[in-house]
């Protein structure tokens, strides 16, 4: 039996008023299947981050439908907090909670949202810290960690909620070059384990190696998409060629 896509975006628009009207997303449609890894690339201001943030309603799309795991999150009656618990998000600037220790960063939402006991949440948190390779730092405060370590904690924090989908918003853009690898390794492992991932990134190597599909966005539209081997070697549009020429 063919499973319905876990993410089904149907023709969404998003406007910003800054104060002049700016169309950030223009009739964007796209689907993501279970276990698929989709990488979104594009020049800055192309709307790729906005698109990603619409997927867990950090930005409210102005029209269209976004069906996440069968629920339309643009329906005002939907329980957005329940959806967000299923959709992990990793930010460019980590956004760890600086007043909590690393382990408390991982357990807080588990206990508050999932209603797990402290013991259960800490066991889960320690297992995930082990997985991302910084279990020894569980008692440290986030500002005592390097950027790469912080981002790995942030990934673990999202994973602690047992999400069905992980969204990554330029997870390596704020990192020193030598720390990019350790974060990408964690993400690659996650992809191999079958996590559904939508990743906005400038890491073309990661896109080539891990992505099932690459989307190219420009001026609020998805211009071209395809498997990475096709996308990087033989893009069809002139705009895509130009962009790839600039960054590769």
């Amino acid at each position: 039996m063919h499973k319905p896509p876990i993410i089904d975006v149907q023709s969404i628009d998003k406007f910003f008023y800054t104060p002049e009207r700016l169309q950030a997303l223009n009739r964007v449609s796209c689907t993501v299947a279970h276990g698929e890894v989709v990488v979104i690339i594009g020049p800055s201001g192309s709307g790729k981050s906005t698109f990603l943030r619409c997927l867990n309603r950090l930005e409210y799309a102005d029209s269209g439908h976004i069906i996440i795991d069968g629920v339309d999150i643009l329906d005002p009656k939907c329980d957005i907090n329940a959806i967000r618990a299923e959709v992990g998000m990793v930010f460019q600037s980590f956004n760890l909670f600086p007043h909590k220790t690393v382990l408390d960063n991982l357990t807080m939402a588990q206990m508050t949202v999932r209603g797990r006991s402290k013991k259960e949440a800490e066991a889960k948190g320690m297992a995930l810290l082990e997985k991302v390779g910084i279990a020894e730092k569980f008692a440290a405060k986030p500002d005592q960690l390097s950027g790469g370590q912080q981002q790995r904690v942030a990934i673990a924090r999202s994973l602690a909620m047992d999400p069905k989908i992980m969204l990554f918003d330029e997870p390596t853009s704020a990192l020193d070059p030598e720390m990019v690898g350790e974060v990408l390794d964690v993400m690659k492992n996650l992809a191999r384990e079958g996590m559904t991932m939508v990743v906005v990134t400038h890491e073309m190597g990661f896109a080539r190696e891990v992505a099932d599909r690459v989307l190219f966005m420009d001026k609020g539209e998805i211009l071209e998409q395809g498997a990475p081997e096709h996308f990087f070697t033989a893009p069809t549009l002139e705009r895509t060629k130009e962009f790839l020429g600039q960054i590769l």
Binding site: L58, N81, V113, M161
Partner: peptide, 15 residues
């Protein structure tokens, strides 16, 4: 407090 803190907390499903 940086906007990202609220976004991170909400994205985890907190009200």
């Amino acid at each position: 407090v940086h906007r990202g803190q609220m976004e991170a907390a909400r994205s985890l499903g907190l009200t």
